[in-house]
Design a protein around this nucleic acid. Structure first.
Length: 599
RNA sequence: CGGGCUAUGGCGCAGCUUGGUAGCGCGCCUGACUGGGGGUCAGGAGGCCGUGGGUUCGAAUCCCGCUAGCCCGACCA
C-alpha cells in the first residue's frame, strides 16, 4: 500500500480544536484521523480507519486463538428482549430509543447480552453443544449524560464483546480465565500498559469481575494500588480485619454528659475535657460514628440502614451500594442516600448527633433486634472487644468504653468507609495509593441471570434441563485507539507503536527536482512490493517544513527524507520516537527498511 | 440534573462597552518567487454574525425568550 499525500483525504490542522482538552483528542483531530459528527460521535477518516483496523485485527487474532467465533448483530434492536430482562426500563435515559413507522419500539444497542443469549437459545439445545464462545466487534450506543475527551467516552463507540456459555461453574471459570489471558495478550500486543483490578459486579449480577485499567491521569476511573502489586477498584477494596480482643478485664461502660456535641469534632474536644485519659488524648478514631442511610430498594421500598464506623472515617456511599445487597433479602440494585430529617422523625429513639448502637446487649437500639428495628452494619474494623466512645441515644450524652460484642451487637459487617491513600492493601503488599485509569476492558462472570430470564436451558447428560451459565467480556476498541494516542505522543504529534501505526514508513521528498520524486517513487514501489505500508508525501509545491511537521503530527514510526543528500547517494532515515537520524545509501535503504519493519 | 463559559466564512479569533457598508490569522483558488523546519509578494472565492421575537430610521452590537456546544460536578453493564 502506498498512500500519496497529494490525493489522500486528509487535512491537518495547525491549531488545536477549541473543544478538545486531552492530547489524544487534540492530536487525532489535528492529524486528520477523526472528525466530530455530533457530541460524542465521530467520523473515521482514512488514517484513523487504518489504525482502528489494526487494533481490531489484533483483537480478532487473540479471540480466535481461544476458540471464540465471530458473529455480527444489528445495532438496531427490538424492544422485547430488553423488556424481558428488565433493561428497557433499567437503562433509563442512557438508552437510545426509537420507533418504526408502526410505532413499534426499537433501541440502539448499548450492549448485547440479550441478543447473544437468545441466539444460543435459538440454535443450541444440548450440553454437547457447549462450551460456546461468541464475539463481535460492533458499534454500541449509550446516551451518555456527558460525553467527553473525544474517543475516550463517546455516545457511539466500538466494542469487542464476547460471551461464554457453559453448562457448569467450572466451565465458566475456564472461559473466564481464557478471556482474561487473551485480554492480557491483546493489551501487551497493543503496547498498552494494563492493570487488571478487582471490581464489583454491580448491577450486572454475577460473582466475579475484573476491569483492565490503563493507568493515566486523564482516566475517569479511580483505583488504588500498592507497591507490592495489589490493584482494585475503590468499591472492591477489602479491609484487613483485626483480631478479636479479649474483653474480660475491660471496665464497664460509662454514660457521661457531653452537651452540644452533635459532631465527631465537638465530641472529641469535649471528651478530652470531661474524661481525660492516661494513654493520651481521645481522637476521632476512638469514636464510633453511626450514620443512618436511606436505601431505595428495587421493590420501591425506602428502608433505613445504620452504619457504624470509626469516627475518623467517612462513609463512601458507592462502596456501601456495591456491598449492601448481600445484607438485604431483595437483592438487585440499591440506591443509597443520607437519611433525611423526615426519615429520622419516624424513629423517635434516634437522636441526631447522639445515635448509638446500645447500652448493653439487652438495651439495643440499632439492629434488627434493637428497638429501632433498623439494620445495623459495621465497618470490619469494629471487631469484638474494641471499645468505643459513641452516642447514648439521649441528647447531650455519650457513652464511653462501650465494648463491641459485650455491650452491643450488629447485624453484619460491610465495606463502607472511604478508602484513603496509606491504608494497607488487603493482601499485605503495602500501603495503598490512589491513581486514575481508563477502563479498557471488563470481564464478568454473569452466571445465570440472563439465561434464567431469557430461559436459555439445555439438556444435560441425564436428560434434564439445565440453565446455562454465562460470562461477558468487553474491550473498548475505539477507546483503545484513544488510549494509544494518549500514551504515544510528544509535543510534535502522535508517535504510533509500529503494530498499530497507519503505515510503516512515511516518505518525504524535499526539493523540486524531478530526480528526487523519481527516486522516492521507486523506493515507495519497492517497499510496497515487499509488503511494507507507505505514506508518500509527493505534494509538489509544499515546503519542507510543512512536510516535516505533517510527518511528525501523523506519527508513522519511520520517516524517510529524500532530499539534498540524494546527490551524494544517501537518504535520511529518522526514527519518529527517538528523533534519531541516520544517512543510508539510497541503494540499500529499501532492504534496511524492510528489515526494520519486518524485524 | 446542578455550576461556569461560549455561539461571527472550513479552523482559530477580533468587533459588542459607546448601534451606522463584517474584519484578522490559518486554510482554500490563480500567478510569480522560494525550496531542509508551517517562507515571500500580488490577486481572488467564501459569512442569514446559533435561533425566535422586541427596541430603533438603522442591530453582530441593546432587551426578552429559546436552542446548541464545551468545561467542572452528579451519573456512567
Amino acid at each position: 500500500m502506498v498512500l500519496k499525500l497529494s490525493t489522500l483525504f486528509l487535512r491537518t490542522l495547525r491549531e488545536d480544536p477549541v473543544d478538545a482538552e486531552v492530547a489524544s483528542h487534540k492530536l487525532l483531530i489535528r492529524a486528520g484521523y477523526i472528525r466530530r459528527a455530533a457530541p460524542g460521535i465521530y467520523t473515521w477518516l482514512p488514517l484513523g480507519l487504518r489504525v482502528l483496523g489494526k487494533v481490531e485485527a489484533i483483537i480478532r487474532e487473540e479471540m480466535n486463538a481461544i476458540g471464540a467465533q465471530e458473529v455480527h448483530f444489528p445495532a438496531l434492536l427490538p424492544r422485547e428482549p430488553y423488556e424481558t430482562t428488565g433493561r428497557w426500563t433499567e437503562y433509563g435515559e442512557g438508552l437510545f430509543r426509537l420507533q418504526d413507522r408502526k410505532g413499534a419500539d426499537y433501541l440502539l444497542a448499548p450492549t448485547h447480552e440479550e441478543m447473544f443469549t437468545l441466539l444460543v437459545k435459538d440454535l443450541y439445545n444440548s450440553y454437547k453443544d457447549l462450551p460456546a464462545y461468541l464475539y463481535q466487534i460492533q458499534n454500541k450506543y449509550r446516551d451518555e449524560a456527558r460525553p467527553r475527551a473525544g474517543l475516550l467516552r463517546g455516545r457511539e463507540f466500538i466494542m469487542k464483546d464476547s460471551y461464554s456459555f457453559n453448562i457448569d461453574d467450572e466451565g465458566l471459570e475456564e472461559a473466564y480465565q481464557a478471556h482474561r489471558a487473551a485480554y492480557i495478550k491483546i493489551f501487551a500486543r497493543l503496547g498498552l500498559e494494563i492493570l487488571p483490578v478487582f471490581a464489583t459486579a454491580g448491577a450486572m449480577g454475577g460473582s466475579k469481575s475484573e476491569e483492565f485499567l490503563h493507568p493515566t491521569p486523564v482516566g475517569e476511573d479511580t483505583f488504588v494500588r500498592s507497591a507490592g502489586g495489589y490493584a482494585a477498584n475503590v468499591e472492591a477494596v477489602t479491609t484487613i480485619v483485626p483480631e478479636d480482643i479479649d474483653f474480660t478485664d475491660a471496665p464497664a461502660f460509662d454514660v457521661k454528659d457531653t452537651p452540644d456535641t452533635p459532631t465527631i469534632e465537638t465530641l472529641v474536644a469535649c471528651a478530652n475535657e470531661v474524661a481525660p485519659r492516661a494513654e493520651g488524648a481521645w481522637t476521632a478514631a476512638d469514636t464510633l460514628k453511626n450514620v443512618v442511610l436511606a436505601a431505595k430498594l428495587p421493590t420501591g421500598e425506602r428502608r433505613l440502614v445504620a452504619i457504624g464506623l470509626p469516627g475518623d472515617r467517612n462513609v463512601d456511599l458507592k462502596r456501601v451500594e456495591a456491598n449492601i445487597s448481600s445484607h438485604l433479602e431483595t437483592g438487585g440494585e440499591v440506591e443509597l442516600e443520607a437519611a433525611t430529617e423526615d426519615d429520622l422523625k419516624k424513629h423517635p429513639t434516634l437522636i441526631k448527633g447522639y445515635i448509638g448502637p446500645a447500652l448493653g446487649l439487652d438495651n439495643a437500639v440499632l439492629g434488627l433486634e434493637g428497638s429501632s428495628k433498623i439494620l445495623f452494619l459495621v465497618d470490619p474494623r469494629v471487631v469484638s472487644g474494641t471499645s468505643w466512645v459513641t452516642g447514648a441515644n439521649e441528647s447531650g450524652k455519650h457513652v464511653f468504653g462501650l465494648v463491641a460484642g459485650r455491650d452491643f451487637a450488629w447485624d453484619g459487617t460491610i465495606e463502607c468507609v472511604e478508602v484513603h491513600a496509606g491504608d494497607p492493601a488487603p493482601d499485605g503488599s503495602g500501603p495503598l495509593e490512589t491513581a486514575r485509569g481508563i477502563e479498557m476492558g471488563h470481564i464478568f462472570q454473569l452466571g445465570r441471570k440472563y439465561a434464567e430470564s431469557l430461559d436459555l436451558k439445555v439438556l444435560d447428560q441425564n436428560g434434564k434441563l439445565k440453565i446455562v451459565t454465562m460470562g461477558s467480556y468487553g474491550v473498548g476498541v475505539t477507546r483503545a485507539v484513544a488510549a494509544l494516542a494518549e500514551s504515544n505522543h510528544d509535543e510534535n504529534g502522535l508517535v504510533w507503536p509500529r503494530n498499530v501505526a497507519p503505515a510503516d514508513v512515511h516518505l518525504v521528498v524535499t526539493g523540486k527536482q524531478a530526480e528526487l520524486f523519481e527516486a522516492a517513487q521507486k523506493i515507495a514501489d519497492e517497499l510496497h512490493a515487499a509488503g511494507v505500508e507507505v505514506i508518500y508525501d509527493d505534494r509538489p509545491k509544499v515546503s519542507a517544513g510543512v512536510k516535516f511537521s505533517d510527518a511528525e503530527l501523523i506519527g508513522v514510526p519511520t520517516i524517510v527524507v529524500i532530499g539534498r543528500g540524494l546527490a551524494d547517494g544517501v537518504v535520511e532515515v529518522k526514527d519518529r520516537a527517538t528523533g534519531e537520524r541516520t544517512d543510508v545509501a539510497v541503494d540499500t535503504v529499501v532492504s534496511e527498511l524492510i528489515a526494520l519493519v519486518k524485524g
